[in-house]
Simulated assay, not measured.
Amino acid sequence: MFRFCCAAIACSVALLWADAAAPADPPAWHVGEAARVFHPATARNWRGARTQALVTTIWYPVDPASPELAHDIGAPGRPLFHGHPAIVDAPLSGARVKYPLLVLSHGTGGSADSLDWLASALAAQGYIVAGANHPGNNASEPMTRDGFMLWWERATDASEVLDGVLADPMLGPHVDRDRIGAVGFSLGGYTVLELAGARTNLPAFERFCSGPQADAICHPPEAARIHEDPHAPPLTLATLSPETKASRDRAGDSYRDARVKAVFAIAPALGEAFDSHSFADVDIPISLLAGEADVTAPVDTNIHRIAGLLPKASVTMVPGASHYVFLDTCLPGVMDRLATICKDNPGVDRDAVHAQTAQRAIDFFATALPASGA
């Protein structure tokens, strides 16, 4: 069961999830799934990524008469996760003229598909959800040092995905441009906070990680997957490329996308990269959610720190849940091989956490992105 608490004074007393969340409504739609490859005007080649385009998965509502087909998530012949049944390239439902749009951002070394559980649940309730694999930092190809280190650049990916979906001939005309939000997990949670207007204090984060108080957020396990050039000189500020130095210089810029009207951040990371001034320009609804047993993005230095800097944000904590419970549910054949991301703490039901988290997101966006006349 979830524990929900609002950071506002009026909601300072913790409420049990059963009292705070209504039962899930039955899905109104089936789920369609489409792939797009967006080519932004600003190249990502300086990140060293093998694929510089924005390879994007889009989930969207489809008429219930169209039969969904079961599928799993992962490379062909090597599936990792259970996938929600979907219809590939089916027509968008004609039940409504316009649908709200959510841009989705995955965590370090992950993929948009690793959040299929959430995107599908949102699509079944009438949302178009679009998530790209961030170049240089995804599960589909070797991770690069720039893709791993220059987190603020991910917000530009998300904004370019919004551009691409809005220009898409099938989907763009049916997007309600007054009802656009963002949802992200882990480093993706940080990314969507940037879209809301948060500013990064890179020197503060580097001081934190070089000091005695440094914790697990300074050494994410995915760092071991960074592809290193064996002939490259040791990494120092002096050996950074001009493009990397230029990116670091703009780390503290605002990446606010005014089209984004609400943000739902799951297990948001890099809390120590924010300070008392970081959220001065954030004036849209924010909902934060994480597991109480998260040791990968420790709660004190991440979600609780962010919540303290965002007193109007709502906060939901999941008892017993660790960081990777918010990835898709693993297939039995990979459970032992990928135990770090697949096995949850005793008593934690990943599918139940997914269902309740999805309902929390649905309820949040229903309020934060109300339909016309609502």
Rank of each mutant, 00 (worst) to 15 (best):
V192F: 07
H71V: 04
V353Y: 03
H174D: 02
F148C: 09
C209H: 10
N201S: 15
R199P: 05
V325M: 04
I87P: 01
L289Q: 09
A358L: 02
R36M: 02
A368V: 05
Y127N: 08
P135M: 03
E194M: 11
A265W: 01
D344V: 10
I362F: 01
P100I: 02
R256C: 08
D249M: 14
G109R: 10
I9K: 12
V353N: 02
G83Q: 00
F365P: 01
L309G: 06
W151N: 14
A216E: 06
A196R: 06
I58Q: 06
A20T: 01
F365M: 04
V348Y: 02
R207Q: 13
D25F: 11
A214I: 13
A21I: 12
Q213M: 13
A28F: 07
F4N: 07
E68H: 03
D363M: 13
R360L: 15
S322I: 12
D336P: 05
V129L: 01
A75F: 03
H227V: 08
A214K: 14
G147M: 07
V103C: 13
R96P: 11
S186F: 03
A246K: 01
L118W: 00
T316E: 05
L101I: 01
D283M: 06
L187W: 09
H231G: 14
N133Q: 03
R36V: 02
H323G: 00
F81H: 01
G172A: 06
T329F: 08
L270Y: 12
A8W: 12
A355T: 14
D363C: 11
R305N: 07
G32T: 02
D19C: 09
P27C: 03
A371E: 13
V88S: 14
V334M: 01
G308H: 04
C342A: 14
P173M: 15
H304C: 15
I73F: 00
R44V: 05
V334N: 00
F264C: 05
A112N: 04
P298V: 05
P64G: 05
V334E: 02
A307F: 03
Q359R: 08
V37C: 09
N133V: 01
E160Y: 09
D163L: 05
H277S: 15
I128N: 02
L16P: 14
T191R: 00
E153S: 13
G164Y: 06
R360N: 11
T244D: 08
D257T: 13
N201F: 00
H231F: 11
N137D: 14
D89M: 00
W59R: 00
L237E: 13
P169F: 07
S278V: 13
Y324N: 07
T200C: 12
L288A: 04
G109P: 03
P64V: 08
A95R: 06
Y190Q: 12
R360A: 12
D249K: 15
I266N: 08
A70H: 06
G189V: 05
I9G: 10
F4Y: 11
F148D: 01
H134W: 00
G110L: 02
C218W: 05
L92D: 06
